[in-house]
Every structure is written in structure tokens, then in C-alpha cells.
Design a protein around this nucleic acid. Structure first.
Lengths: 185, 185, 185, 185
DNA sequence: CATGAATGAGTCTTCATTCAT
DNA sequence: AATGAATGAAGACTCATTCAT
């Protein structure tokens, strides 16, 4: 039992550290470096994630879960318009990181839809709810679908990468997207 | 001189093929594979690009040049509003590829500003002209800056990746951006 | 701990075999060949010596240590004259090999003083002791310094290379040096 | 004819430059670098010396010829004792370089006796004459043979390498050898 | 004859993965 | 369960040599 707890804690630490290291240095970091940063031997890392790819997927799935949580919370808001705006801003802010991960994964040849599976569905469901209430409140045009929203979220993250630390620029970009989301085509 | 011509042709072919292969399979493809695809020995590849990184930069710079050309052409259009829309659509369409490249480069640790240099400026200048005339014609809100436009272009490309082959979805996404770009009602 | 012992044994074996192979075939032998001769995978070789140069330095330093030991033993002899003669003969005999190593290292662009460091000092100290007692016993002229002795040792090794297996020639050469070392009549 | 002259001049220049470059940087310099230093294309270099090894041999043979000339001149001196001393000093002085070449050759796996052939014999003959007259004049002990002298020359060069720029040390070393050469065993 | 572009075998080195302890 | 030494396939890059111009 005690061992189990240790192991679980190890797994969690590896995931945390791996996310940080992978985002900072790209998918090309060696597993050994990740293990070192996590303070475990490579043997241990490979016991928890039998493959480098599985480790990366693990990191990505954890991130998706957090994203789904955020979306669920936003969907529960009484003002879906403000909620979607806030969510967009927040997601965009942290998106720089998630984006890096997605890019890594794609460039690593990992099939996202395969890998994400369940977590992907979670996100989709939560965002679906959010989208529908925003549309009913008139804050978002009716013809948009969940997939579009997801794409636009990713796109916004990407766009914001170019703004760097310039807060005004970030606002302008988010503003463009929000305006676009509202106006009926 | 004739040899020089041959060499130039070789260089061009390597660049072409490298772009295709790099986009298809990511920066992790071996130089050998690129050489094979280009129909030259690795020696030849390395004679033209002494480093894998230089090859990738070469590919990227070539792409930037093409992008700058497109932007310049768009900027010359009599209807800047339509031009920017068309340009956005086209760039978005091919952007999937350019995007992949940019992602590759970032994840490869290449400093884009360093690498692109002159080509980067070319793009910026051309897009600047396009943006200004679009703003004067009232098709684009006045507060946007070139950097914002670049970011939004990249973002649109990214967003469109999620639409896949669904033409309607692509249109919806481009529609959102175009509406957002217009002056805020 | 046991693994550590295994690793240490591996390192020692690599060092031993590398010396043999390097002397026999020059610094240009591939690391792979050395690994094969040592019966380990290249990975193992590079784990112990992260660079070919470090491997060569390791071999050289080991040799210096042995040389220092020999010199120390000779310095302890009651008859320093005979000791220096014997030491000269012995060093000359094995010198063929040490010489090859030194040549290799120089031609490999390794800075001996840098690389050898401590081991170099060891040798110098031991030879210094040997030289001084030989001078006090009148077996060696007083104006010689340690550096001269080292040079003459290396020179003798080199000279003996030309004698090949001819024992008489070897003796003649050693004789010339020994006579020259004696106080000038 | 004019072309022939050009070619001969080219060959000479390549040999000269190659000697300098090879001594400075070791046998591992690329042929291309030698060609560049000589101001010719690699094609030209390979036309004159169809193999890197042949180029190195060429350089070495040229050096042997110069050595043989020196020896012949020394042998013609009226005072063979002084002559051999002077010759030893001079050879030792320039020997640092010749030595480097010999080391290079050995480490390059070139069979000196094979390669040098005729030039080697020339040197041997000239040194033989020098040695015999020195022995007749009583300046050198009678039991020494030409091979021993050659070995001692090489050894002296080597020994002097360790003296570096220290002129006094150089003299001490040459002194030791000269004394050793004289004393009857 | 000179040139330099092309070639590909060979080198050093890294890294995911396994396994004995 | 954790550890880290061992492994070898694979990758980037070099360089002697050839050959078309």
C-alpha cells in the first residue's frame, strides 16, 4: 500500500515535470533528462510509461482534463457571453503552452484523436454545452459548431503567440475573435 | 558555368523536396531520407546546406519569400477588402503547410527572427501595405497593427487545421475572422 | 554496489584494450573497433568516456601513472647509477609503446600538459628524485635538469625504435646515452 | 611546354604547402584544405598525387633529399668531428619538423622503408661516409653503425622537442649525445 | 590540364529501451 | 519497485576520390 502510494506520487511527479520540460525544450529532450529533472531513475520512468510516446500522451491527456474542467466551469456561468470571453482569454493565455504541446505531438507523429480519446470527448462535451448556451443568449452566432470553436481556440492561442508579452496586442486579437464570434454571418 | 547551373538546379530541387518531406514527416526526418527523396547523395545535400538546421532555414525562408509575393500581389488589388479576404483564404489554405513549418522550426529551436531576417521584413512590409489600404477603405478596423495581422493569419491557419477537408467549416472560420477584422460596429 | 564493480571492471578493460589497439593501429582506429576489441557495445564505451579524446587521454594518463611508479621504484634503489641505467633500459624498451602514444596524442592535437596534469607532475617528481641521487653518486653530470632527462628518455625510446629487434644495436644506443649522461671527462 | 612548366610549378607548390600544413596540423588535415592552402583545386592536387598517401610520401621523400644533401655536405668537411657535431645540431634544430613528419607517417600507417626507398638509401650512404670519417678521426667510437647514428639523430630530435625554445637545454642535450658518441664503450 | 560538384562509405555520438542487481 | 549500466540501431556530418565540364 505504502509502495503503491509512492508509485502514484512518482507517476504524478513525472507527469508534472515532463510537461514542464517538454514544453520548455521540445519533444526531442531525452527521456533521461526528464527522469533526472523528476528525480527518478530512467528505469522508474520507463516502468510508469513503457514508451516515450506514452509519456507524451500522458502529459497531453492530463492537460486536456484540465481544459475540460475549465470549460465545464465556464459552461456553468450565468452569463455565457462573458463566460466564453473569459474562457477564451484564459485559454488563450495558457494556450501558448498547450499549443506547444499540440505542435510537439503533431510533429512527433502522434495521432491526437487516437491518443486523446476519452479526454478529447470530455473537452468536446464541455465546450458544446458552453457554446450552446452562448448561442442561446445571442452572444455567439448560431451557425458555429463545436469543432469550429475548438479550432478558433487553438487559432487564438497561436495568434497570441505572436503578440508575445504585449498585453494590448493580446487584447486586440481576442477582441477580433470575440467580435467575429458574435456577428451573424 | 554549366556546372554552376547544374548545382543551382540541384540546390533548388533539394529545397523543394525538403519542404515537402519536412512538412509531411516533421523535422525529425533524417537528412538521408531527404537526400534520397531529392535524388542526390547526402554529400551533395551537405555541400549545399552544411547543417540540417541551415537546410530547414533555407526551406523556411523560401516559403516566406512566396508569402511576401502573395501579400504584395494582394496589396496591389483595387479592392483591398476583397483582397484581404482572398488573401486570408488563400494563405489559410496553404497555411496548413506553412504553419507546420513554423511549428517545426520553433520546436527545432531555430530562432525565427534570426533565421528569417530579411525575408521576414519583406513579409512584414508587404502585409503592412495591404493592411493600411484595407483600413483606409474601411474594411478593417483602424486599431490593428501588422503584427496583429500576422498573428491572426497564423491563427487562422491553425484554426483551419481543425476543419480538415470540411469546406463549409473552413468558410465559417474564415467568416468569423473577417467579421472580426471589420471595424467594430 | 556489485553493478558498480562491474562497471569499474568494464572501464578498466576498455582502458587496457584501448591502449593496445591505439598503439597498434594509431589514433585513427574507430571507437567501434576499440569497443569490439574490449567486448562491449559502443554505448558502453561512450558511457565511460563521453568522447574519443577523453578515452585517449585516459589511456595516456594511465600510462603516465605506470611510468611514475617505475621511476619511484628506481629512485629508491641503493645504487642510483645502476638504477638509472636499468630504468633507462626498461623505459626505453617499453618506451617504444609510450612514444607511439605521445606521438598519437600530439598528432591528435591533444594538449599533453592540459590532459596529463597531475600524472605529469607525478612523473616529473619521481624522475627528479632519481636524477638528484644519481648526480650525487657521480653517475650523472650535475648540469642536467629533469626536463633534459625526460627529453633524453623520450629520445632514447625513439632512437631504439630504429634498432628494431637487434639487441646489440639497442645496447649500443643505450650505451651512448649512458656514457653521455656521465660527468664530462 | 609552357603547360608542363606550369604543372611542375604546381607540383612543387603543392609539395611545399603540403609540408607546412601537414606539419602544422597533422596528417588528418583534409586534402581539400591542403589544396586550398596551395591555391589549387582538389582536382589538380589529385592529378599530381592520386592518393593522399602518395602526397604524404612525396613530402617525406623531399625532406629526405634535403637531409641527404646536408649529410653529404657535412661528410665533405675537413674536420669530421666538428662536422658531425654541427650536423647533429642542425638536424636536431630542424628535426622537430622532420620528426613530426615521421610520426605522422608512422601513425598514418605508411611503411617508411617502402615509401622512402631510394631517398632513404641516399641518406644512409651520405651518413655512412660522414660516420666513417668521424670514426677515423677519433671523434666517434668505432663500434657504432650507420643505423645507430640514424636512430640517435631521430632520438636527438625527439629529445630536443622537450627542450622547446630553451637554447641552453638544447645545448645540454646535444652535449650529452656528442659526449656519448665519443667515449669508447 | 584545371576545376569543383557529386558521391557514399565511414566516423563519432546520442538515445530509447532492456535487464541484472 | 527502483536503479542505472549496457546495448546497438540510427543520425548528423566528413572526406578521399571521381568525373563532367
Amino acid at each position: 500500500m505504502t509502495l503503491r502510494a509512492d508509485a502514484r506520487r512518482n507517476r504524478a511527479r513525472i507527469l508534472d515535470v515532463a510537461e514542464k520540460v517538454l514544453v520548455e525544450r521540445g519533444t526531442t529532450v531525452s527521456t533521461e533528462e526528464i527522469a533526472r529533472a523528476a528525480g527518478v531513475g530512467i528505469g522508474t520512468l520507463f516502468r510508469h510509461f513503457p514508451t516515450k510516446e506514452e509519456l507524451i500522451q500522458g502529459v497531453f491527456v492530463a492537460r486536456l482534463h484540465r481544459l475540460a474542467d475549465d470549460a465545464t466551469r465556464a459552461a456553468a456561468s450565468p452569463d455565457p457571453g462573458a463566460a466564453i470571453a473569459g474562457f477564451l482569454r484564459e485559454a488563450a493565455a495558457q494556450g501558448e503552452v498547450k499549443n506547444a504541446l499540440a505542435a510537439m505531438l503533431t510533429s512527433a507523429g502522434v495521432d491526437l484523436h487516437e491518443a486523446a480519446g476519452e479526454a478529447q470527448q470530455e473537452v468536446r462535451r464541455a465546450l458544446g454545452t458552453l457554446l450552446r448556451s452562448a448561442q442561446q443568449s445571442g452572444a455567439v452566432r448560431r451557425d458555429l459548431e463545436v469543432a469550429d470553436l475548438i479550432g478558433l481556440l487553438a487559432g487564438t492561442s497561436k495568434a497570441i503567440e505572436y503578440a508575445g508579452q504585449d498585453a494590448a496586442a493580446r487584447e486586440r486579437i481576442v477582441g477580433v475573435i470575440l467580435d467575429g464570434l458574435r456577428a451573424p454571418s
